[in-house]
Design a binder for these strands. Structure first.
Lengths: 182, 182
DNA sequence: GCCATGGCATACGCGGGCGTATGCCAACCC
DNA sequence: GGGTTGGCATACGCCCGCGTATGCCATGGC
């Protein structure tokens, strides 16, 4: 139980709650009145902080993109050396500690929402580029390999939702397989 | 332009149209009144053929599951020998000729709809088992490898939506990588 | 302590999807 | 060729989400 008192909400409170709802219930939950009910307030507050529903959506997407790119940097900075970084990055894609549900909801949203599709494409691009750079450093120039690892990562993130399986181990094995090409 | 005349619709006409709409516009489009408008009829017809909207959804899911499992058999029957079958199966997962958009919409739907999640889990299970069997036949017993190939396949299906890349070639390279383990 | 704003509550009208009820018409049936 | 049934059309009442308008109250500035 935390702060039961914040009678006054900030715009970021709304965006943070929106991000949680997105992860928990999908993009369909990001509507003004349901959100207001969830926040135990009224939509008067919603329309004070946001122009309209699309505005809310855009800001949530922008927030997510920023944090996803920051997480990417954090993962890379958490290790030294190309191979350890490669492993850490692959793991974080296959099973992100914070945000597996969020990531999944974003991919779902992207199939119908143009803004989500664009934001996700930029994040995918950045991660793929990072993978490719690390592989190059270890002497693997073939760009197909980065694509294989990234695709396997996001695929496992989805398989992890239903069928129980060891993504952590599997993605590690794949990295081994690729590194054996040196 | 085909049959402009079918003034009388069958239940399967509705389901076929629903499958198309699902692929084109996502599960949100599978509502009674929008569907009726799309079919140039009224919801009187809809509620004649279906008890309610969930009933419509369930039948669409059931139809998709059946056809996905049939496609799986067809792909396997289209080749002889474990390795050719393995390649054909991997290709069909990464870039299904008919139904890349459908498959994507199903995965999106599965994040919020329990029935879709269950149907997709059964299909995933069947494909994964088929992959594993084929790998066993070629002498690769490690079940992680099937998981890696399948995850890469569904991941590439998603990457193909936005970033242009050669899924066909990449998944083939992955199969080569795994087969080199023999 | 007054008042000015910031932050919300309340109350509308609107559109759109749901499900039901009932009416209508075209085909078959004999 | 008159009835019966299958297949839709029309019309209702409902709920829910949108966006706006306006009212209210609690703080902080002076």
């Amino acid at each position: 139980m935390i702060a039961q008192r914040p009678k006054r909400l900030t715009r970021d409170d709304w965006l943070a709650a929106g991000a949680k709802r997105l992860a928990a219930a999908g993009a369909e939950a990001l509507k003004a009145e349901p959100m207001a009910r969830h926040m135990k307030t009224t939509k008067g507050s919603f329309y004070w902080h946001f122009k309209d529903v699309p505005d809310f959506h855009d800001r949530i997407l922008s927030r997510w993109e920023t944090s996803a790119l920051a997480d990417l940097s954090a993962v890379l900075d958490g290790e030294t050396g190309a191979v350890p970084r490669l492993r850490a990055l692959a793991q974080s894609i296959a099973a992100p500690e914070t945000g597996s549900a969020t990531e999944s909801a974003m991919r779902s949203w992207a199939t119908t929402h143009a803004g989500a599709r664009a934001a996700l494409a930029r994040v995918d691009e950045a991660r793929l580029a990072a993978l490719q750079d690390l592989l190059s450093e270890t002497g693997i120039g073939n760009p197909e390999m980065a694509r294989i690892i990234y695709a396997a990562g996001i695929g496992m993130e989805r398989l992890g939702q239903t069928g129980a399986g060891d993504n952590h181990g599997s993605i590690g094995s794949l990295v081994d397989l690729v590194l054996a090409l040196r």
